[in-house]
Amino acid sequence: MTERDKALMRVQTCGFAVTEAVLFLDTHPTDSAAREYYDKAVKDYNAAVMNYITSFGPLDMTQVQSSGGWSWTEGCMPWEEDCNVEI
């Protein structure tokens, strides 16, 4: 696994934890353990995104370091095989 693969995998893993926690909390808003899980998942996700975009380019349109050129449309597209991590 390349360094990019590892960083992307971390974003996907943490992002999924956030998605799951959000759906659960939508129907269990008073579950304090789930809220703690959500808080940690969001923290991990933000750190994973930070780690990815520092080395491998923006994940959303507000993360482009435009002084270095227009990188938003550079690189592979998410639906391409080369862009994806081997599980």
Binding site: L8, V11, Q12, G15, D60, E81
Partner: peptide, 14 residues
């Protein structure tokens, strides 16, 4: 909506 430039789960078909 804001696009996030990644799949939710990897798709890698050789």
């Amino acid at each position: 909506w804001k696009y996030e430039k990644r799949l939710e789960y990897p798709v890698k078909i050789k």
